[in-house]
Computed example of a mutant assay.
Amino acid sequence: MAENDFQNKTVCVTGAGRGIGKSLALRLAELGAKVIAVSKSDENLKQLAAQNNKIIPVCVDLCDWNATKEAIKPHLPIQLLVNNAAVAILDSFLEVKPDDFDSLFNINVKSIICVSQEIACDLIERKMSGSIVNVSSQAASAALKDHSIYCASKAAVDGLTRVMAMELGAHQIRVNSVQPTVVLTDMGRIGWSDDKKAAGMLSKIPLNKFAEVEDVVEPIIFLLSNKSQMINGVSLPIDGGFLAT
């Protein structure tokens, strides 16, 4: 990816404290972007910022709408945004709890609206173009056992992405999402360490492997970059063919 796509650009990455968000923040900083790294874990942010001086840590709980907007404001304008923060609470459908529903939708969906509104309104006022990538999941398009609320929240992310693309496109702000399969972050490796559980999922992936973090980071960077100027409103599977079967 050409570095000049990101030189003199400011990128906001939510959920940047670990996993995909952390790797993405570091990669974007390497490409020359100023990175606003958002997480509720101050310790994770300190470790991340110590690795590259182009990374600016912002510690805020994305469940707090007003605090989130206030935390973003000082760093505007932000031309590029990756809404990556998400949580998963697994339960069978018959055991879904109201509090778990609220937690997942607050982080996985509502925080996208909050952060994107703040950044997009500012870009529109300044008449600047931009690109937003929402991190969805294969769970948006396929039923996964014990993932009732998670599947619903990620389907909401993709629906939201399409409307954002339609409404913000007129202002030259592109909005797309990515739908990863199981990603082998530190948490992913623990969650899928059981061979029997892993074999069941792998059998549904034609490439017969899970995604590495870089497999998700690079497509996101492509969607942020000038190489994808006519891609808008797309939900891109990064799943080894899972959704094709």
Rank of each mutant, 00 (worst) to 15 (best):
D100Q: 14
D100C: 05
A155F: 00
I132F: 10
L144I: 02
Y150P: 00
I113Y: 15
E125W: 12
A156R: 02
N106I: 01
D122R: 08
S116M: 10
S116A: 14
A139H: 06
I132P: 15
S129M: 12
S137K: 03
S116C: 14
K110E: 15
H147Q: 06
F105T: 01
N134Y: 08
V109H: 15
R126E: 05
A156F: 03
V109W: 09
A140F: 06
A155S: 13
D102T: 05
D99S: 15
A152D: 05
V115A: 14
A156Q: 02
I124M: 11
Q138A: 07
A139R: 06
L104D: 01
K110Q: 15
N108W: 00
A152L: 01
A140G: 04
R126A: 14
V115L: 09
V133F: 04
S137N: 03
N134S: 13
N106F: 10
L104C: 07
S137C: 07
S153A: 08
M128I: 06
D102S: 12
I107M: 13
S103K: 12
V135D: 05
S141L: 12
R126H: 10
D122G: 14
S131H: 09
Q117V: 02
S131T: 02
V135T: 09
L144R: 01
I132Q: 04
I149N: 03
C151T: 04
S129E: 08
S111K: 02
A155C: 08
L104T: 02
G130D: 00
D100H: 06
S129N: 11
Q138S: 03
A120Q: 10
D122V: 15
A139N: 02
C151P: 04
S141I: 11
M128D: 04
S103Q: 09
S148T: 09
M128A: 11
C151R: 01
I149V: 11
Q138P: 03
D122K: 05
A152H: 05
S153V: 02
E125F: 13
D99V: 11
M128N: 06
K145D: 03
